[in-house]
């Protein structure tokens, strides 16, 4: 591609794209090594070509590009071998064809980020069906693949205004299926990272659709068993919402109190961390609406026999802003916690 005359560049580019539609079996690592090397070299050339040259992306090339990408990435993901797969403990099954797949994803990114890229042309091929299949790939066990998918979907969301509502709706469906049906989806954290940047960019006043997403998806997401895998991203999304619209604070805190973990201390520590992040940005006028039920829960945490829970709750008093809120409202907060503090200071084992 580097050596060909400009006039023949596009024709050769299309041939290389078609060549890269051939798929190889990487489970048999000795099979067809020559063919695998030819495709790897061709993919490298394609990445290089789109990344460095201008004028490569003319209209006829778009369908060939999308076809090559689709043939390579859209596939049925392997079933999780062991049903007891614990994402926190077990090593994920990595994608065997990653040597090729990575280059296809790299090529896709360079294509989207090229200064010549025209969404108006690409939207004929990057349509709702394409995006739906892209979202299904987020369930891949391979974290490297999910990382690329996250960046790609972030770019697609940014560049295709007409697909934004559809992408949000499909993310909704994935989360709801994850919460209420399967409790199994590997890409929740990655999707929440993208949504964090979307929430961050919401126009004010917030649309009802977005508030429904907070109440019907983000808050119930806290109830899922594998919360620890995506809690940081989830808390970030929640705080982004409150920085956009402080009037949602009471609803969020009451939701967290409703879903407060009863038997999982690890989750309780996460909830306390999230509460502190929320209190960091809370308006005093919102604080007074939730202080009573909130500090009753904090009091329960202070008296928890699990010292990490008790410690994390007491750590709130290390936060100057929270301290100032407590001092301004001590007539309500003190009665809620003093009895527990006094008892714990006498009886707690740690």
């Amino acid at each position: 591609l580097k050596d060909v005359a400009v006039a023949e560049l596009h024709e050769l580019l299309c041939k290389k794209l078609q060549q890269c539609c051939v798929l190889f079996d990487f489970l048999d690592c000795v099979a067809d090594l020559k063919g695998k090397e030819i495709k790897r070299a061709a993919l490298n050339e394609l990445v290089e070509c789109v990344a460095t040259n201008r004028g490569v992306l003319i209209e006829p090339v778009y369908p060939e590009i999308i076809k090559m990408i689709s043939v390579n990435i859209f596939r049925t993901l392997p079933p999780t071998e062991n049903p007891e797969f614990d994402p926190e403990e077990d090593e994920p099954n990595l994608e065997p064809s990653w040597p090729h797949l990575q280059l296809v994803y790299e090529f896709f990114l360079r294509f989207l980020e090229s200064p010549d890229f025209q969404p108006s042309v690409a939207k004929r091929y990057v349509d709702q069906k394409f995006v739906l299949m892209l979202l299904e790939l987020f369930d891949s066990e391979d974290p490297r693949e999910r990382e690329y998918l996250k960046t790609i979907l972030h770019r697609v969301y940014g560049k295709f205004l007409g697909l934004r509502a559809y992408i949000r709706k499909q993310c909704n469906n994935i989360f709801l299926r994850f919460i209420y049906e399967t409790e199994h989806f590997n890409g929740v954290a990655e999707l929440l990272e993208i949504l964090g940047s979307i929430i961050n960019g919401f126009a004010l006043p917030l649309k009802t659709e977005h508030k429904h997403f907070l109440v019907r998806v983000l808050i119930p997401l806290h109830s899922v068993k594998s919360l620890s895998i995506f809690h940081a991203q989830l808390a970030y999304c929640v705080v982004q919402f409150l920085e956009k619209d402080a009037t949602l604070t009471e609803h969020v805190i009451r939701g967290l109190l409703k879903y407060w973990p009863k038997t999982c201390t690890q989750k309780e520590v996460m909830f306390l961390g999230e509460i502190e992040e929320i209190l960091d940005v809370i308006e005093p006028s919102q604080f007074v609406k939730v202080q009573e039920p909130l500090f009753k829960q904090i009091a329960r945490c202070i008296s928890s026999p699990h010292f990490q829970v008790a410690e994390r709750a007491l750590y709130f008093w290390n936060n100057e802003y929270i301290l100032s809120l407590i001092e301004d409202n001590c007539h309500t907060v003190l009665p809620a916690i003093f009895g527990t503090l006094y008892r714990v200071s006498k009886e707690h084992w740690n």
């Binding site: 969404p119 940014g158 560049k159 961050n200 940081a232 005093p284 301004d328």
Partner: peptide, 30 residues
């Protein structure tokens, strides 16, 4: 009380994963 950002707790790192925001109204040149 003036809103002060909390001191970063030693074991609660700031979110390293925050991606660039995408503004709702206009076509963001991402």
């Amino acid at each position: 009380p003036q809103k002060k950002k909390r001191p970063k707790l030693p074991n609660f790192p700031a979110p390293h994963f925050a991606m660039p925001p995408i503004h709702e109204d206009n076509l963001e040149k991402v």
